[in-house]
Design a binder for these strands. Sequence first.
DNA 1: TCTTTTATTTTGATTTGTCAAAATTCAATC
DNA 2: GATTGAATTTTGACAAATCAAAATAAAAGA
Lengths: 225, 225
Amino acid sequence: MPSVTVENYLKTIYLHQQRRPREELVPMGELASAMSVTPGTATSMVKNLSDQELVDYEPRGGVRLTRTGDKTALQVLRRHRLVEVFLVEVLGLDWAEVHDEAEELEHAISDKLLDRLDAFLGYPEFDPHGDPIPSAKGMPKAAELVDIVEAPQGRAMRVARIKDQDPAFLRFLERCGLTPGQLVTVTGRDAVADAVTVHPDGKDPVTLGTSAGRKIMLRPASQRR
Amino acid sequence: MPSVTVENYLKTIYLHQQRRPREELVPMGELASAMSVTPGTATSMVKNLSDQELVDYEPRGGVRLTRTGDKTALQVLRRHRLVEVFLVEVLGLDWAEVHDEAEELEHAISDKLLDRLDAFLGYPEFDPHGDPIPSAKGMPKAAELVDIVEAPQGRAMRVARIKDQDPAFLRFLERCGLTPGQLVTVTGRDAVADAVTVHPDGKDPVTLGTSAGRKIMLRPASQRR
DNA sequence: TCTTTTATTTTGATTTGTCAAAATTCAATC
DNA sequence: GATTGAATTTTGACAAATCAAAATAAAAGA
Ligand SMILES: [Mn+2]
Ligand SMILES: [Mn+2]
Ligand SMILES: [Mn+2]
Ligand SMILES: [Mn+2]
């Protein structure tokens, strides 16, 4: 069985692979800083993962998950996200806090317990932040989403997914009414001010910097997920 | 924060201290075998715990928890037992399996989560095996129980607590109807055969060896816990 | 009292995951 | 082409937790 540390590395590599073009390697520096370790530590861990056939490692190039590593990463992600749903839906914890709780619990859940939890929750497909929950098989094909900055203006859209787990950011979104499922319209974009304005249905319009805007993913209001 | 290993040692020392006379030290060999490590490992860990003021260690004598160590052990035990209640009552897991699940989860639950869980479960006082759940303050005063071997014969009693977590034993008890809360009468004791017979209300009488019998604790049926 | 047995401690290694700092490589700039 | 700089790797060290096997102490037996 992979250690907690190995699980965390694999999950982190998976997440960073997602955010970059097909087949491109995740640079060691990026991995090190994501894991909050020194670059040398990341190098030695990755060699270790490579010996275990969990990643392909190209010295001076970077790292990429193997088929096996990918499967393990998805299992961790599945546990993480199902736990988040449980914490929010059942125990009523704040969606801004559950990420950190799940970061620990994701390593302590057996397969049998996970199945029971999944059934108990009614086989949810998304976590409280709109992130898809991998099935026992693998990751469902992702719906096509646009972030607030790129979204068409004046069209009825719905918040689908938040790409940042920072509690302060999540609490800010909750105050504004920018939570998954919320109906919104992007009303303006100011390239000079580097800002974008979005109007959540029934709330006040909100103006965000583009770096914040790019963390909020939308889908057409018509589209059923 | 204490490591998972430290938490496990403290909890184990606590449990073994319980089973012996007041203030008596837990021998290193007993601790080592309970932790499934070699005696040398236990010695070096205990010195370590002693440096952290979590235990009093008397070389060639044994080990005992300090006030601080005791508090930490009780917190772990509280997490363990609340998790067990949750797994059985909410997710419907088998009482024979939950001990091993809780063994991991007890290290992954934050204080905030624990409070929520406690409230959600309605502040239970006992786990599925009849073990008392320590409050945030400390361990409640234990009710006086007798095991099946020592119990008076012919009196209406109730199963209160099972002092063994072995899944095979627990499944056996479930088949016989010897689960906490069950009304029973001890009908016979045979010193020569080293056996005792107990009759669970509405079920068939069961004859047990005394070592098994001593793991099943009873209280008078009249006594309200 | 002397010897044997058993429990415990000591010693020397090993594994995992980490850091600091020096060395290396590759790319960009001059 | 030589030089500089950024990213990465290498090296040497360390802490936590563990084992195997040798040394020691205490208890039990003769
Ligand atoms: Mn984690
Ligand atoms: Mn999430
Ligand atoms: Mn444990
Ligand atoms: Mn229990």
